[in-house]
Amino acid sequence: MSSEIIFAQAIVDGLLMGSLYALIAIGLAMIWGIVEIINFAHGEFLMIASFLSYFLFIYLGIDPLISIPLAFLTTFGLGYLVQKGIINRILEAPFLTQIFATFALLLIIRNGFFVAFGPDIRSVTTWYSEATIDLYGIKMSIVKLFATTIVIIATILLHLFLTRTYLGTAMRALSQDKTAAQLMGIDIKKVYAIAFGLGAGLAGIGGALLTSFYYVFPEMGVPFTLIAFISVVLGGFGNILGPAIGAVIIGVLQSIGALIMTPSMKDILVYIVFLAILLIKPTGIFSR
């Protein structure tokens, strides 16, 4: 294989993985931007969805890709309840209280899964798990290609929701001026709960997508949460495009990092670029 092909392969792999990161990062950015809370338990929603689609596959034979809508609805519902039951009660509380609340949620969910299912690493093999298509010598995993398609569709739907509906416009308004939003007649606690639910639901779609080509275990959310945070900081707040592009950049950097260094050091390149960008533009690339 020529070096151009290898490099192009790395870029394509990075784009495919980056798009999945983007979905998770957009979810985090929504919660961060609208509810103004840092959701440390973001990766836990992903993990819950992944376990759900794993068990649906094992016990009921439902393909992980088919269970995506159910994974979304489940994590949406959980996110909604978390906001309604916990976060809405501490909206006026100090910042640290809010941080500890979502951190506690992380510990409870993750350790709860450890207790219930053990630390075992599970995986699912489907007929398409190893399938690839060949494009000018570049191999693309079908399942990742499918995941990228789902991510693009979800992002477009989210964009339409945020720009074309009352509720979506209310969410954007809420992120700009909470008091003025209340004066418009917006029930902010309800909108917060829906926003948190949507954010968690996006992580849930990510989790269900991961099930068919990644490992399912209680700590699987960790790297994804971290990458989502970096993407949001990298891309900037205020829109969903910034974090999404930030996430894709990270995917590509990881992939190139693995190529020019060793796979275990792939994240070094990510952090070097991350720090460099923060030095040049601390508010993120696409911040307003």
Partner: peptide, 29 residues
């Protein structure tokens, strides 16, 4: 607000990054 009491706050408090149309849309929330 549902009762028909509407408050135009001090300093306008518009949503600066939303369009004029979107601000009016939210008025009718």
């Amino acid at each position: 607000v549902e009762l028909g009491i509407i408050h135009v706050p001090e300093g306008r408090r518009l949503f600066p990054y939303l369009t004029v149309y979107e601000n009016l849309l939210l008025g009718s929330y």
